[in-house]
Each structure stands twice: as C-alpha cells, then as structure tokens.
Amino acid sequence: MTKRYDSLGELHRVYWRWRLALFPEDGTVTVGETTARFTVSTRSERRRAKRLGGERRVIEMFLDELSGSEVVWDVGACVGTYACLIARRLSSGCVVAFEPDPTNRSRLSENLSANAPTERWRTSAVALSDTDDESVLQSEFVEAGGGHHYLSDHRDGLPIEVRRGDSVVASGYPAPDMLKIDVQGAELQVLRGLGGLLDGVDTIYVELHTEKSKRYGTTTDEIEAFLREEGYSLTHLGDPTNGRPGAYLVRAHR
C-alpha cells in the first residue's frame, strides 16, 4: 500500500511540474506590510507560496519583532519562506539561511536574490547540530520546496557537513540576534550546538515535532525544558494551520 501511495504522490508531482511549466502561477506573497516573490515550479513550492506552511500568523509575529538591524538565523530555511520575507524587512541586518539540501538551497539562493540585495543575506550548506562531523541527509522525496529532511546513519542518502553553531561563527559567519528553527526533530541538537551564542539571542521561534524528535533520542518536553533552563519564557503558538500532524510552534523569549 505504501508503494502505491508513493507512486500516486510522484504522479501528482509530475503533473504539477507539467502544469506550472505550461501555466505559470504568481508566487507573490504578502504578510502584513512585507511582500516577497517566490519561484513556483513544483507542487511543493505552490503549496508554500499559497499556505506559507500554515504559519502565516507566526511569520507576521516574527516580522513585527524586527527593528531592521538584526542578524537572523533561519535554520532549516528550505526555499526561503521565512528568509525572503525577513530579508525584505531588514534595513541593515542580514539573514543567514541554513539549508543542507542542494535542490532547496539552489532555489533558496534564487529567491533571496530576487528579493533582497546580497548584503542582506547569506546561505550555508551545513546542517546545524551539537557536533562538528559528517552525516547523511535523507528525505521522503526530493523536489524544490519539499521538506521532511532528516539526518540518518544510512549510507544511501546525501553526505553533508554537520556543524555546531558556535563553530559556524568561528568560521566567519555573524552571530545571531534572533533564531527561527525548523529541523524536523533535531531542535535540541541545534540549540545545544549554539553554546554561548544563546546568551546573545533574546527571541527564538521554533517548530517542535512530537514524533520526529524521537529520531534523535529526544522529546519535545526535553527541548522545552532546555529552553527554560537557558532562561527563556515559552509561549505556545498552536499547530500549523495546514494540518501537519505532530508539529506545533513555540516562541521562546527573555
């Protein structure tokens, strides 16, 4: 049955690539007072442009907190749903967008280039974690805009670099003032890898995954406890409105 659904899903993806090639759709998105434009060439990109991952209200909250001079790290940037809108909102700061999947990272750079000058953004191919190592990236399917990537010990995935956040800063990237994290269950590893950088971060928006965090031997309760131990107060922002099971959004602030 799983193989049948996989085949149907691939047929739908092929259909949408064909349809969007023949009948292009406008990828313009407005959240509050901020507008960005995204390339729409796949079913996944179309969904993101239309639904914003079910996070429109949360994105608007994030944008409203920006003064314009911050360094924002978008950890798990995909094709730039958050990063492009953030870059559009910044006046002197920059967004650093981490995306290890090469298909999404290529589109991420394209979207950022279309929305903001180069001094407002940087991208990185590393996956943030709590070690400096190598790993393998796997996904349920690969197309621009597709998510659900995760780190694995299997050999049949994509070899990638894994880095601690404090190691990334030591290599020349600017330290973050604000964070957005969506890494399909690896949130605790990302937070631990920031080390002392957390002292300079007052606000974190994080998507937590009750089932996917088990891949990494953690739980959402552990992640929330870690943030509280670091001095953050947590506000639960509810589930994404597009009906993704097992995911919920949290704002951590101090």
Score class of each variant (00 low, 15 high):
R4A: 15
D6Y: 01
E10H: 10
H12I: 13
R13L: 01
R13K: 07
Y15T: 10
W16A: 09
W18C: 10
W18S: 13
L22F: 02
F23E: 13
E25R: 15
T28N: 03
T28G: 08
E33D: 15
T35D: 01
R37N: 07
F38C: 08
T39D: 13
T42F: 04
S44L: 03
E45M: 14
E45Y: 01
R46H: 08
A49S: 14
K50W: 06
G54S: 08
E60W: 06
F62L: 15
D64I: 01
E65L: 15
E65P: 00
L66M: 11
E70H: 06
V72T: 08
V75Y: 03
G80C: 12
Y82T: 02
C84I: 12
S91R: 14
S92R: 12
V96G: 00
A97K: 00
D101Y: 00
P102K: 08
S106W: 00
L108Y: 07
L108A: 03
S109Q: 14
E110I: 09
N111Y: 03
N111S: 10
L112R: 03
L112I: 11
A116K: 05
R120V: 05
R120M: 10
W121C: 02
S124P: 04
A125Q: 12
A127L: 06
L128A: 05
S129L: 03
D133I: 02
D133H: 10
L137T: 14
F141N: 09
V142G: 04
E143L: 06
G145C: 02
H149Y: 01
L151R: 12
L151G: 07
S152E: 05
H154Y: 08
G157K: 11
P159K: 11
I160K: 07
R163I: 04
R164D: 03
G165I: 15
V168K: 02
G172A: 09
G172H: 06
G172V: 14
Y173H: 06
Y173Q: 02
Y173S: 08
P174S: 06
P174E: 12
P176I: 10
D177F: 11
D182H: 07
V183N: 06
G185I: 12
E187T: 04
L188R: 10
L194G: 04
G195Y: 02
V201R: 07
T203E: 15
Y205L: 10
V206E: 09
V206N: 08
E207H: 10
K212A: 14
G217D: 04
T220E: 13
E222G: 13
I223K: 01
A225P: 05
R228A: 12
Y232S: 09
H236F: 08
L237F: 01
L237Q: 06
N242W: 12
P245M: 09
G246M: 08
G246H: 13
A247Y: 11
Y248D: 02
